[in-house]
Design a protein around this nucleic acid. Structure first.
Lengths: 213, 213
DNA sequence: TGGTTAGATGAAGAAAGCTTCAGGTTAGGA
DNA sequence: TCCTAACCTGAAGCTTTCTTCATCTAACCA
């Protein structure tokens, strides 16, 4: 009974040895690299494997197909950004709304700017059917974190925290996308950052004085 | 000299007769339809032609390749939205900032909601290399229109109109994307619309009182 | 009505990429 | 040291889709 424990339809392995973990990581990195250099249209599994320094076969040992590969790369990036948001939100609990907005927006835009090209490259993945779902779920999780932070503020907030969080997210994501896709993100960064903070503060202030006097 | 005037490398025709105009239109419509039903990944030129009720050959008579077809469909949609923005901006010249924000945002979100699925379907096209450029250019044109409107306001605006316009656009696009990709856009529409207007008004008001007292 | 151009057709060539699998290599435990 | 399982390899099958072009039809004009 040699191949006893193998289930008939589980062709994809989970890395257990060190080298295989390294392979998976290299493949994911290479995916971004290829996305950057030739774009999603001309990204092929062979090319990714080449760039990763492994063979196609190895790639297919860990990713069932091309789509799953792209999704994994996207998920990885979004998780990083999400973690930054969560960490930032935790640190700001109990603060003023203005303080929250300033720190959150700064952290978010910085994270996106850290590797502009990666973010931009992944936009093409995020627009596919499955990619959109991943983005959406990540957005929902972040929304909860932001709403939780807002609710903990020392200022009174007369608006539904989730709604307010949606507004902040919408503005952040919208402006950051404008920034990333502009011709010179570096030059536009500071003014847009400052103005976005200004916008958020104005909004949150209005939120906290909406019904109270 | 039968084929005298034909330049050697101009295989694509421009519609001159009525039926061909109809064909081009049907093809463009069909492109959206196919995008909707099977997604960009499985969109094929043959499928589009079928849906349009013409043959593939006809399609290739007006679009040099698949990419150009998708771009044309995207451009068409963005132009519609842009025209709405421009028209709205013209109509609001000289008004108060709050009035401008209310009308502009309402018009924009309504336009996007008019056919939610089309907008969403085109996101996948807008993320391709060439699609991004088209989106960017459309955004720049809209930015000018909005900035012009803001500059004409009866209220004082102590902020660079283009910067303020970028903020509004960022927030509008960001929130609308959240809306369109949410699980039930119809239900979220009203609250998000109202809150977005509230945000914009708060921001613009702050802009007009920033340096003056 | 006849000639000329615009428009339409769709089978088939050609290219390209995804994915598999049979066989070789490496690592780690007994 | 030896054996087994994990891991890696990459040529090639298979499918899919883009795009062309030789041919046919419809519209317009003299």
């Amino acid at each position: 009974m040699p191949q006893s424990l193998k289930s008939p339809l589980s062709p994809r392995k989970t890395p257990v040895q060190v080298r295989s973990v390294a392979s998976v990581d290299a493949i994911l990195e290479a995916t971004i690299q290829v996305l950057l250099s030739v774009g999603k249209e001309r990204l092929t599994t062979t090319r990714v494997a080449q760039r990763a320094g492994v063979s196609v076969g190895t790639l297919y040992q860990y990713f069932p197909n091309k789509s799953a590969l792209l999704q994994a790369a996207l998920k990885r990036h979004l998780d990083e950004v999400h973690n930054i948001i969560v960490r930032t939100c935790r640190e700001q609990e109990g603060q003023t709304l203005a303080q929250m907005a300033t720190v959150l927006i700064t952290a978010f835009l910085r994270a996106k700017m850290k590797d502009v090209k990666t973010s931009v490259a992944l936009y093409s993945v995020s627009s596919d059917v499955d990619g959109a779902k991943i983005v959406q779920q990540s957005g929902i999780r972040s929304n909860k974190a932001i709403a939780g932070m807002l609710a903990s503020s020392s200022d009174p907030l007369t608006t539904d925290p989730q709604l307010a969080a949606s507004m902040l997210q919408g503005a952040m994501v919208g402006v950051s996308r404008r920034l990333l896709e502009s011709t010179s993100p570096e030059k536009q960064f500071e003014p847009l950052l400052q103005e976005l903070i200004f916008l958020a503060c104005a909004y949150l202030k209005a939120c906290s004085t909406r019904l109270s006097v």
